[in-house]
């Protein structure tokens, strides 16, 4: 079945663009709190997801990884289905990647796939498009990947978000790995990062 609306082009160079996005995400995840810039793909579909969020999905999702989109991100569905061949699922607890363009629509974190103690890698990756990312904000991060302490500012997350995430820490190694995006920018907060402040 062909999608009815026009599909934007995907990666210009599928090999190099996917590699470039992956390396930026890897760098971000290896340095929680570090804001990286995702410069591909050139075009992004309609909807509220920025280039970084779309780039993550295009570089990492495929037929093996169900993707959940919130309502605001839904216009990207046909684009992702076409370019990634990924199943789009309506139930968040079935997704490998969750992409939310509206932070308030993120389901309760504890209801998302957290993996198991024997297979914690099955915990989901949650991508949230936020209003702003600031390298010098009120959050303080500690943990693997961070030399001492990192600071980060995130605008637009619903009240109580960080408390809910802190509650997951006791479940480690189960957990969710967070990628926060704003346009071309991306910051990672893996499950091992201890985040103070709000």
């Amino acid at each position: 079945m062909r999608p009815t609306q026009a599909i934007e082009a995907g990666f210009i160079d599928p090999v190099d663009d996917a590699n470039a996005v992956f390396r930026q995400v890897l760098d971000a995840l290896a340095h929680p709190g570090r804001i990286v810039e995702i410069a591909r793909p050139t075009r992004v579909p309609r909807g509220s997801l920025g280039r970084a969020a779309i780039g993550v999905a295009m570089a990492l999702a495929d037929f093996e990884t169900p993707v959940w989109l919130d309502e605001a991100a839904a216009p990207a569905a046909s684009h992702l289905r076409f370019h990634c061949n990924c199943p789009i699922v309506s139930k968040p607890d079935q997704a490998t990647f969750l992409l939310a363009a509206e932070p308030a629509s993120v389901p309760a974190l504890a209801t998302l796939p957290l993996g198991s103690d024997t297979y914690p890698d099955q915990g989901a990756t949650l991508v949230i498009e936020v209003q702003a990312l600031d390298p010098d904000g009120s959050l303080s991060l500690e943990g693997p990947g961070i030399d001492g302490r990192a600071r980060l500012g995130v605008a637009g997350l619903p009240a109580g978000f960080w408390e809910a995430r802190r509650a997951l820490a006791a479940l480690f190694p189960r957990g969710i790995d967070l990628l926060l995006t704003r346009g071309d920018l991306l910051v990672a907060v893996p499950r091992t990062s201890t985040v103070r402040g709000s």
């Binding site: 599928p14 090999v15 996917a18 590699n19 992956f22 995400v25 890897l26 995840l29 290896a30 570089a59 990492l60 495929d62 093996e64 990884t65 490998t96 297979y119 914690p120 890698d121 915990g123 990756t125 693997p144 990947g145 190694p173 957990g175 790995d177 893996p190 499950r191 091992t192």
Partner: peptide
């Protein structure tokens, strides 16, 4: 091939997120 790389990249990212855990 790119599909294989993508699968391995996902495994690498989870490995970084859970230090020391062996991702199949």
């Amino acid at each position: 091939d790119e599909q294989t790389k993508r699968m391995i990249r996902r495994a690498i990212l989870k490995a970084v997120a859970i230090p020391g855990y062996q991702v199949p």
